[in-house]
Amino acid sequence: MAKPANTDPAEWVDRYGDYLFRYTMLRLRDRSTAEDLVQETFLAALKNYASFSGKSSESTWLVGILKHKIIDHFRREAREAPLGENDLREHPDPSSFDSSGHWTSGPTDWGGNPADLYREKKFLDQLTKCLSELSPNHANAFTLREIEGADTGEICKVLNVTETNLWVILHRARMLLRRCLEARWFNRKTEKEP
């Protein structure tokens, strides 16, 4: 069976470069690391070009290679900076609750149900900032779970943590991220737009 016509690798950068870059930035949030991973992805693709079956589209194939590189990056980061005591402290936001465990000041009303939020570049900027403010272990666990959609067993292997610890980490990550988005986006917006 004849292979479908593929793009000349010389055109890859123009065709897929920005997409792969944004894909990586959403997960790693660091320009130079993202650029490196995109470059490594193209180089690996070029090396294995002969084995590209054409069963999937070229962009799917490239994203598949990139995904592995991103997971490897998370694995490396977890090895270099293993979980600290701080990552697992019982509650991320103790001031939110009184001594009997009730909200001191609960979550504020975010208004409506902004289903199109994901299209807003400014929201993405704030989400990225909030993720960057988490510790790397928290941010990476959240990214693997919610952005990559990996299951917890898989994430435990990548980050080298037990499942119980992962639940604690994800709880902390979600709580801090929610609070950060509330401050940086939802509350700010209602103030600015009368």
Binding site: Y118, L124, I147, R174
Partner: peptide, 24 residues
């Protein structure tokens, strides 16, 4: 709110046109 964040992130990853910067 947790579910809204989850939903928003999922839509973001599902779209081909992720908003954001380009390669320098």
């Amino acid at each position: 709110q947790l579910l809204l964040i989850r939903e928003t992130v999922r839509r973001l990853t599902a779209t081909e046109e992720i908003p954001g910067e380009t390669l320098s």
